[in-house]
Amino acid sequence: MSRAARLMLGALRVLGLPVLLVAGWWAWSVWRPSFYVPSPQRIAAVFGDVWLTARLGDDVLPSLVRLLAGYVLAALLGVALGTAIGLSGRLRAATEPALEFFRAIPPPVLVPLIMLVAGLDTAMKVLVIASGAIWPVLLNTIEGVRAVDEVLSDTARVYGLRGPARLRRLVLPAASPQIMAGLRQALSIAIILMVIAEMFASTSGIGHTVVLFQRQFQIPEMWSGIVLLGLVGFLLSLAFRALERRVLHWHWHQRETHA
């Protein structure tokens, strides 16, 4: 097969389904026009006007900043606490029941509580995002740190890896596949909570704007917000995969060789 043909086939594989879905949606909107389900081209037409003008700075950017802040907070706390708990059997025994309980609470239900405690500003949203996104990071880190191979751990001891060196050169790299798995789950949870926190009580943000459009019956505009959220999630997931490839290249290759 020629290079061009292979590229075409690759593009078809990646873009085939999205193109098909949009085409189907378009066909449906022509066949059964509905006020609530606008055609794709109407949504595309308003998208630029709605999101790439003043709202880019007023709503999109604040949303992304909150998302990032909450996510980074969850990641740092999750990895730090998870490492401490994973390394200490006693700490694990003491915290396990409490962790199981807190993990079982659906994070959105914390929004009213956090609103009371932290107010309505950015800090509240960041806290909501962090409080939900921390769990997969924390629990995966605990498991990853616990599961450090015994022989590898003995080897590290024999060669004098202690304290911070042990943490940096043995424990964290060994746990990194699981930590990354936790961070990946946390990313989607963070996006969901960003939207929910903004829907509750907010004067800015993508979630706030979508609700606003819905109340004002600006249906194509509302839909464009949903599309934007989808795009944000998709791009973040791509960025995450690039990071994963850098951090875990040894892990993937190792699994391939042993498969």
Partner: peptide
């Protein structure tokens, strides 16, 4: 210090990363 150990499980005693 000054003691080295070689384990049977070579696959698990080298740092894969």
């Amino acid at each position: 210090p000054g003691m080295a150990v070689v384990f049977q499980e070579y696959g698990r005693s080298l740092f894969p990363w």
